Amino acid sequence: MGLFRGGRGSGRHWPGRKPEPADEPIDPARPELSDTDLHAQVEDLILRELGGTPLLDDVPTPLSVARIIAWFEEHEFSYFLDNDGDLGGLWRGRLFYFFLFGEDSEILQIRGQWNREAAIERLEVVLEACNEWNADRIWPKAYVRVRDNGMVHVISEVATDLEDGVTDAQLGQLLNCGLSTGNMLFDAIDELFPDPAAAAP
């Protein structure tokens, strides 16, 4: 349903607004509006007519490691850069990495690792738990890796394509999502395999 169906001179006007003449003279002294200014005026008009509030000026900008670090520092989170230059940190004792993939580093991947490991004999149970998680929830993707020593590691992963950029608020939401849902997964695995050292003898 179009908001402006009919157009000027169609005999249809917004309530309470004085009708404009069908053939408004063009003022040669009036400068032409740029596409950006015209877009802003249209947004303001729609918001006024619909009783909305002004749009925020938070414009999406390209993703970068520096922006992720700035978010960490703003929230006083500890972080590190490993020997490969990968950005990581510990949250509730769980290791999380923050990778940028794609030709323009536009894909953000937040990958967490359970702070414990399971024996290979537990692999079927762990796989079933991950499959149930993935069937019931959108975030994070849960999967396992079997190390060379035969131990099973549980991994969480949240990936987002930010080709069109991301605002600071959106980036904060994505980082919070990757960390909080990853820890929710690991809490569920902890419940499945309680840590014997955490229980009183």
Rank of each mutant, 00 (worst) to 15 (best):
M1D: 11
G2A: 08
L3M: 10
L3T: 04
R5S: 13
G6F: 05
G7T: 01
G9K: 02
S10L: 02
H13C: 03
H13A: 07
P19H: 11
E24T: 12
P25K: 03
P28I: 13
A29C: 04
P31V: 05
E32G: 11
L33N: 06
L33D: 03
D35E: 10
L38R: 08
Q41R: 13
E43F: 04
E43C: 05
E43K: 07
L45C: 07
L45W: 02
L47S: 09
R48P: 02
R48H: 05
E49A: 07
L50S: 03
L50C: 02
G51Q: 06
G51T: 03
G52P: 01
T53G: 05
P54L: 06
L56K: 12
D58I: 05
L63Y: 02
S64D: 00
V65I: 13
A66N: 04
A66M: 02
F72P: 00
E74I: 00
F77L: 13
F77A: 03
L81V: 09
D82R: 01
N83M: 12
G85K: 06
L87C: 05
G88S: 08
G88M: 09
G89E: 13
L90I: 09
L90V: 04
R92N: 13
R92V: 12
L95W: 14
Y97V: 02
Y97P: 01
F98M: 03
E103G: 14
D104W: 05
D104C: 08
S105A: 15
E106F: 06
I107K: 03
R111W: 08
G112C: 01
Q113L: 11
W114T: 01
W114F: 09
N115W: 12
R116G: 11
E117L: 11
A118K: 00
A119Q: 13
R122I: 02
L123C: 03
E124F: 12
V125C: 02
V126K: 07
L127K: 15
L127R: 14
C130E: 05
N131H: 13
E132G: 13
W133Y: 09
W133M: 05
D136V: 10
W139T: 07
P140Q: 01
K141P: 09
Y143M: 08
Y143E: 12
V144Q: 11
R145N: 15
V146G: 06
V146W: 08
R147N: 15
N149R: 04
M151T: 09
H153E: 15
V154R: 04
I155S: 11
E157N: 15
D161Y: 07
L162Q: 00
V166W: 08
T167K: 00
D168W: 09
G172Q: 10
Q173L: 15
Q173D: 15
C177T: 15
S180C: 11
F186Q: 12
L192E: 04
P194F: 10
P196H: 04
P196A: 01
A197M: 13
A197N: 12
A199M: 01
A200N: 14
P201M: 07
